[in-house]
Amino acid sequence: MSDCLTLRFTVPADDFTRAGEASSSTKATLKQLGLPADIIRRVAIVMYEGEINMVIHANGGEITVEICPDQIVMVLKDTGPGIPDIQQAMQAGWSTASGAARDLGFGAGMGLPNMKKCADSLDIESTVGVGTTVTAVVRL
């Protein structure tokens, strides 16, 4: 039997009012498990930024969170438009977000750089027209 706990979420498309529910639920689970506050905070920031990105750019998607004794792995998978230039997307301030996203206080081009800063590792696989999978790891 695996020592890991797996959480799965479906992020609805274009529903800004529900954006963040998966992150909020994950944060509550991590708190229940008694993990250190700084770890919970880093996971929450990475996942929330990723979840917002899915709603803004990719018509939602699927998030899997694997909570293991030595690390927490978040896999955020969407079938959106893909990222043509990942290096450019990682630059602070670069954004292709819509006006609706900006009205909500996002789309400043800080999401991916902030995810990278908070995670111990961040891997982005993306194919234009197929989708994007972001894998973020926070080590315990």
């Binding site: 954006a19 963040g20 992150s23 905070r41 909500l104």
Partner: peptide, 15 residues
């Protein structure tokens, strides 16, 4: 001055 649900969610994420 940003007044929507994501303001509360952002605060929640950051404690």
């Amino acid at each position: 001055g940003l007044c929507n649900l994501q303001t509360i969610r952002t605060a929640d994420m950051l404690d």
